[in-house]
Structure formats: structure tokens, C-alpha cells
Simulated assay, not measured.
Amino acid sequence: MTWLLVIAGAAIGAPARYLTDRLVQARHDTVFPWGTFTVNIVGSFTLGFLTGAVTAAAVGPNVQLLIGTGFCGALTTYSTLSYETLRLTQTGARFHAIANLAATIIAGIGAFYTSTALTQAIWH
């Protein structure tokens, strides 16, 4: 049962990642990887909200497996972040490479923190 929940979440998260990345990137005429940035921040926010909900006992471990491990695991992508940052560096866009790393880390942690604070306001 556990692995089915992870698979079900991933089956939604992986296409959501691809489609979101393509949709967002198509709207920006820049070398900055806005699509990957977007899915990573949305994933961080979602995982933070879920973590807060689990901590508050508002949802159980099965939801955590489905959404946290499955969906967020397939939605977010550290490997693509690494690849795109390296590609930016290799093409001479060093500012964009540094901005990509810094913005992703800062915004990701900020999104996670904000969403866990939101869950505390809702369930505590």
C-alpha cells in the first residue's frame, strides 16, 4: 500500500513538473530557468504546508506519502537545478547561475517557512 501511494503521487507530480516548466518557461524570453524555479518553490511551499499539517495531526502518514514523498518528490528537481546552473555557467551567464542558486535556496526556504507558519495559524 505504501509504495502505491508514492507511485500515485509521483504519477501526478512528474507530469505537473514537466507541464508547469514548459508553460512558465514559454512565457519568459530569458536564459533564467523560471520553470524549474517555479516548480521548486511550489514544491517547497507544498511540502512545508504538508509538514505543518502532519505535525498538527490534521492529516495522516498516508497523505504524507502521497503528497510529500510522491507528488513533491516528482514535482521538485534538484538535478535539473544543478544541470541548468552548470549550463548557465558554461554559456557565460554566471550572474544568472549564481542568481538561480541563491534565489532557489532563499525562496525555497522562505516558501517552506511561510507555509509551515500558515499551518500553525490554521491548526493551532
Rank of each mutant, 00 (worst) to 15 (best):
I98W: 12
L65Q: 11
V24N: 08
Q64D: 09
A26V: 07
F71C: 06
T91W: 01
I7R: 14
L66C: 14
I98H: 09
L81W: 05
T114K: 01
T104F: 07
F32D: 01
A117I: 01
G68A: 06
L66K: 13
G43R: 07
F112S: 13
A16F: 15
F45V: 12
R87M: 08
G52Y: 05
N40A: 03
L101T: 05
G13Y: 07
G108S: 09
L66D: 12
P61T: 13
F95V: 14
W123A: 15
F45C: 14
G68D: 02
T38H: 05
L23H: 13
N100R: 02
E84I: 10
A10I: 08
G13P: 09
G13T: 07
A8L: 15
L47F: 07
V59D: 01
P33D: 00
R87W: 04
Q90G: 13
T30R: 10
A10R: 06
I106Q: 05
A97T: 07
F37G: 06
L118Y: 03
D21E: 12
V39D: 00
S115R: 00
A99D: 04
R22K: 14
A8R: 14
M1Y: 08
A10S: 11
P15Y: 11
L88K: 08
R17Q: 14
A99V: 12
G92A: 00
I67Y: 07
T2D: 11
A16H: 05
N40I: 04
